[in-house]
Design a protein around this nucleic acid. Structure first.
Lengths: 243, 243
DNA sequence: GTTGTCATATTGTCCGACAATGTTAACATG
DNA sequence: CATGTTAACATTGTCGGACAATATGACAAC
C-alpha cells in the first residue's frame, strides 16, 4: 500500500483548505470571504485557479453569492441538499419500494414529532396547505406540488434537521414520480386530501399518536395507489425535472 | 411575480445545462465528456468559464476525474454524499438526540433487511469486522472506525440505496462524536463488541427479527452510554475531522 | 511480443485585460 | 444638517492567449 501520491490539483487544495476553515469554525457561517485577489494572494495561486476552487465550494453549498457580489460562507441549504440527494438516489436507480420502505419508517415519526413541537403558525400553515389543495384537486401537477409541500412542512415542524434531511429527498422523488398516478386512480386524490386533513388536524390538536397513525395509513395508501395504478414497485424510479 | 430576471452567470448556465443533460439521460453515467476546448466551443463560452462550470459540477459529484485526464459523468458517490450530508448536519447544529432519534427509526430496519438480503460474502465481511474489532478494543480510534464501518456494511448489505443514504451520514457524525465516550464508560466497549457480534450472527443466520432486535438494543445502549458519560443530548454535535 | 522513443493531445496553471456593476466618497442643494 | 446626485473606485465575470506537465498512441528496435 504505497503512500498515495498526494498529487492533488491546486484548485482542489484551495477548496479543501477553505472547507477545513469552515468546518473547523475559523471561517464562521455568514462571514464574507475576502476578495478574490486577496484570497489568491494568501493561498499562493492565480485568481483563475482560486475561482475554480471557489466554484467547487459553491457546488458543495458551503459558500454562496450574496446581494453584494461578495461570497458568503454558509451552511448548506436544506432544499438544495434535498435536491442533490434526490438526484443522487435517482441516478443510482433507487426503486419506489426502496424509497417507500424508508418513508414508512420515518414519516409517522415526523408527524408525531410535529404534533409535539409545531408552533401555532406551523400548525396553521399545515391546515392552510390542506385547504389550498381542496379547490385544485383535479390538477395533477398542483396535487403533487401540494403533497410535496405538505410533507416538507411536517418535516420542518418536526424540528429535527437530521429527520428533515432524510425525508425531504424522498418526498421530492416519490411524489414527483407519481405524475400519472392520479389519472390512473382518480379516487386517490380524495383519499390524499382526507388524509392530509386528518393529519393536519391531529397535529393542530397536539395528538402525536393520531398524527402518526394517520400518516401510516396515508403512506400505506400511497403505495396501494401506486400498485393499483399498475406501476412496478421495483423499477428504478423516474427522475423528473425539479417540480 | 416577475419572470425571474434569468440573469444567471455563464458558468452557472454551463453547470445547469450539463446537469440537465446528465439527469435527462442524454449524457450517460460512465460516459466521458468531450475535451474542454470542444465543450467550450459548443456552449459558446471561454474555456476558463467552462472550467468554472465543470468545477461546480464536480462539487456536486456529477463528474469526476478519471484515470485518463478526461472527465467522466458519474452518479454521486455514496461516501461523498454521506460526508457532505454529515457536514451539512453538523453545520446546521444537529444534536445527538436529533441524530439518535432518526437512527433508532432506521437502523433496526436496515439490520432486518440485511438479514434477508446480505450475500454470503457480506455476511462473512460483517463477522470479519467483528473479529477484527476484538483485538483492538482498547484503542478508542479503532473502535470508532470499526463501528462506523460495521454500520456502513449493514447499510450496504440492506441493498436499499435510500436507506443507505439516510443512515450513512448519521453513522459518521454520531460515532465520531463519541471519541471520549469509551474513556468515560469503558464497559461500553465490550457491550458494543457483544452487540456487533450478535447482530452479525443473526444476519449470517438470516434471522431478520433477531438482527433487528439486537440492533435496537445496541442503539438504545449507545444512547445510554452517551448519557452516562455525562454528555448533553441536546447540544449541537461536534464536527470532527473525517475519520 | 515487449520495450523504448517520440510526436501529439489535453489538462492545469498562469498572466493580463476589460466591461459590467456595485460601493464609496465627494459634493451640491434644500 | 439631511438628502439626493454624481463621479471615482473596487470587484467580479468573462475573455484571450500562453506554456509546462503529462497521458496517449504510433512506430521503431529488440
Amino acid at each position: 500500500m504505497l503512500p498515495r501520491a498526494a498529487k492533488t490539483n491546486s484548485y482542489q487544495q484551495v477548496a479543501s483548505i477553505l472547507e477545513a476553515e469552515i468546518v473547523g469554525g475559523r471561517l464562521k457561517i455568514g462571514e464574507l470571504l475576502p476578495i478574490e485577489a486577496e484570497l489568491a494572494e494568501a493561498l499562493g495561486v492565480n485568481r483563475s485557479t482560486l475561482r475554480e476552487g471557489l466554484r467547487a465550494l459553491e457546488g458543495n453549498g458551503l459558500v454562496r453569492r450574496v446581494a453584494a457580489k461578495r461570497l458568503q460562507v454558509t451552511a448548506p441549504d436544506p432544499e438544495r441538499v434535498a435536491l442533490t440527494n434526490a438526484r443522487a438516489l435517482g441516478l443510482r436507480g433507487a426503486s419506489f419500494r426502496d424509497l417507500w420502505d424508508v418513508q414508512m419508517q420515518l414519516e409517522h415519526f415526523a408527524a408525531a414529532l410535529a404534533a409535539e413541537r409545531a408552533s401555532d403558525d406551523q400548525a396553521a400553515a399545515l391546515r392552510a396547505s390542506v385547504e389550498a389543495l381542496a379547490p385544485v384537486l383535479d390538477d395533477d401537477e398542483a396535487v403533487i406540488r401540494h403533497d410535496i409541500a405538505f410533507h416538507a412542512l411536517i418535516g420542518h415542524a418536526a424540528a429535527n434537521s437530521a429527520l428533515e434531511l432524510a425525508t425531504a429527498p424522498m418526498g421530492l422523488l416519490l411524489f414527483s414520480a407519481t405524475r400519472d398516478l392520479y389519472r390512473a386512480v382518480p379516487a386517490a386524490r380524495h383519499r390524499l386530501l382526507d388524509a392530509h386533513r386528518a393529519i393536519a388536524d391531529a397535529i393542530a390538536a397536539r395528538d402525536a399518536a393520531g398524527a402518526a397513525e394517520w400518516m401510516r395509513r396515508h403512506i400505506a395508501d400511497f403505495r396501494r395507489g401506486y400498485e393499483v395504478a399498475g406501476f412496478d414497485l421495483d423499477a428504478a424510479i423516474e427522475l423528473r425535472r425539479a417540480v
